[in-house]
């Protein structure tokens, strides 16, 4: 294979391997923010979800139970965030940081005994069965969670567009006054949206520990949860855009290692910064000064 093909295959493979946690966390954050609340705590949820999923898979021998447990742990932590933020004069950004620290702290504390053991991993779908080249075969061995994430993105898109409940979430997120006039329970809807969003982030964590890289340790997330929160802005609060944003990030993340294997070895620190450069460029190209971001829910505390 030529150098260009190698890098291309590596980036496609990277997109399919690395994007899933970004996808789940950004979808979860998208749901939460569309209800008018920010949850920076999803970084903590991601780490806690990873730990709980790994521990559950290790004890029960069933990785899918681990995914469920990761989602439940995420939902609980999200419910704490949602509950506290519904009290008067609580700032959701500050509370989110507290949740982030609490989530990682709890995960590190209870995760100690699970750093060494090896837990059963999620299976992968061998979609590359037709290919003869091993790199292609391995690139196309994709976790079913990736497809579940895709399905979730389309489901969420439909939920916002076509369902009564989705409309309620949007109203609560765009104008609290309108929601009150309609007699909607703002706090309850936001609590639900935050808990459900964090459950998705917890599944993202389960992917990290049970599929790729597929091991629990304390450096596992290295800030991916926070990046995913930024991706939501990048995706303009649209679930389908979240898929594209997550894929771009995954592909850009594979650039550094794959360029080194084909002999582009100078300046690898720069290639590692590629995902962030891409974000900056796209944001700079699409934002106009003096105007609120297109698609931003009106009730978000950073927008008011």
């Amino acid at each position: 294979m030529g150098a260009l093909e190698t890098v291309t295959v590596a980036m496609v493979a990277g997109a399919l391997r690395v994007s899933t946690p970004f996808l789940f966390v950004s979808l979860g954050e998208c749901l939460t923010e569309r209800s008018g609340r920010i949850n920076l705590g999803n970084e903590g949820v991601l780490v806690l979800g990873a730990m709980v999923a790994y521990a559950t898979s290790y004890h029960t021998g069933n990785p899918w139970l681990g995914v469920v447990a990761g989602a439940i742990a995420g939902a609980l932590l999200g419910a704490v965030h949602g509950g506290v933020c519904s009290l008067a004069r609580v700032n959701d950004v500050a509370m989110g940081i507290a949740i982030m620290l609490a989530g990682t702290g709890i995960a590190f504390f209870f995760g100690k005994p699970y750093v060494q053991p090896v837990a059963p991993q999620l299976p992968r779908l061998p979609l590359g069965f037709w290919a003869s080249a091993p790199p292609v075969k391995s690139a196309l061995s994709v976790s079913p969670l990736f497809f579940i994430g895709l399905a979730a993105a389309f489901a969420m898109h439909w939920f916002f567009r076509a369902t009564r409940m989705g409309l309620r979430v949007r109203i609560v997120g765009d104008s609290a006054d309108a929601a009150r006039a309609l007699g909607l329970s703002i706090d309850r809807i936001r609590l639900f949206a935050t808990a459900a969003g964090s459950a998705l982030a917890g599944i993202g964590g389960a992917f990290l520990s049970l599929s790729y890289p597929g091991s629990w340790n304390e450096g596992l997330s290295s800030g991916q949860g926070l990046m995913a929160v930024a991706l939501v802005v990048f995706a303009r609060w649209n679930p389908l855009n979240c898929v594209i944003a997550a894929l771009i990030f995954g592909a850009a993340g594979a650039l550094g290692p794959s360029l080194q294997t084909v002999g582009v070895t100078k300046g690898y620190y720069l290639f590692y910064a590629a995902p962030y450069v891409v974000t900056l460029v796209i944001l700079a190209a699409t934002v106009r000064p003096g105007r609120a971001l297109r698609g931003m829910p009106g009730e978000l505390s950073i927008g008011r």
């Binding site: 190698t6 295959v9 590596a10 493979a13 990277g14 391997r17 690395v18 091993p134 790199p135 391995s138 690139a139 990290l208 790729y212 890289p213 597929g214 091991s215 340790n217 304390e218 450096g219 596992l220 290295s222 991916q224 993340g253 594979a254 550094g256 290692p257 794959s258 080194q260 294997t261 084909v262 690898y268 620190y269 590692y272």
Partner: peptide, 25 residues
């Protein structure tokens, strides 16, 4: 020997990516 630098002492996702791209090569 193809060497890949990940940039820091503990970067699990990059280490996995590096190992995979070595295998692909």
């Amino acid at each position: 020997t193809q060497v890949i630098f990940t940039g820091d002492w503990s970067m699990p996702v990059k280490e996995a990516e590096a190992t995979n791209s070595l295998a692909d090569q």
